[in-house]
Amino acid sequence: MAMIDPDRGGPAQPLLIARDLRKHFKVKGGAPGAVVRAVDGVSFNVFKGETLGVVGESGCGKSTLARLLLHLIEPDGGELVFDGDPVGEIRGISVNALRRQVQMVFQDSSSSLNPRMPVRDSIAFGPYVHGKTKAEAGRIARDVLVKVGLKPDLFGPRYPHELSGGQKQRINIARALAIEPRMVILDEAVSALDKSVEAQVLNLLRALKENFNLTYLFISHDLSVVRYISDRVLVMYLGAVVELGPVQDIFSRPKHPYTTALLASRPSMDPARRIEEPPITGDPPSPINPPSGCRFRTRCPHAEAVCAQTQPVLGAWNDQDSHIAACHMQVPESGHSLAIRTH
């Protein structure tokens, strides 16, 4: 593989910067002008070597966000900077160059691998596309299979339908690693797996990250898994970031009421201490017409007049340790009765 300058920007340069990413989908058959605000002004940094967890419920836009980062869906607005280089601009790097360095692992599903291709060919496809000969690509495929714990002679010639869910997901990971990316986006990569297999794959992901200095963007709806694997966590609600911070801070001192509710909704794992009252009621509202002001206010126990009037901003982050939340209660003099005070 043509090595692309391993670390252009230096260790302090975030590997990926997303600024104000936006994607609105037209609603099919809906009222004219009706749009789903799938991703609505999302900004964050991914630092080198970290795992950034992205959590949120269905419809919060986390999967759309993953596809925007690779330009698999064209963003309507916003910009991406990869290791200091703006993506898709003249002075930066092309989308194709980005895809050589950022790979994606999809949720294991019946459609994640080409059913008519032996899995080793699916893995060799990436290197082949990037200019390797078929023989070289085949050799890379064998190497990567070993790396994900599959014996190449045993598994390489198999077709996807002959493999279990866990084995298929290892193949998906192998396919992403075959072109030696610097960053891997894992979109619900372990969600469809059985618990015993999920644990195997999580261990594997950790080992691979360590061995190959990878940076992960780990998207999941499962808070426990995100807590285990992430260094920092980004919480999304209805297309916007509501909270971002180091994993210990998010899980021990959540700042946004939504994060608090999410955490409290996890089953207790202890029949003696069952949850007696739902932490919040109702379903997430439709992203077609999100509530005015703060999107969470319709389900928030602390909602006040100010929450309907102005949209809270996430605030600026300084470094990896910043813990920020888009909530009026976090802003002094925001007009919310529970707003923090500065002394």
Partner: peptide, 14 residues
């Protein structure tokens, strides 16, 4: 529209 085609696009294939 299947995932593996999207995955192929993500590897940068034309």
């Amino acid at each position: 529209n299947l995932d593996f085609v999207e995955a192929a696009r993500a590897t940068g294939a034309g």
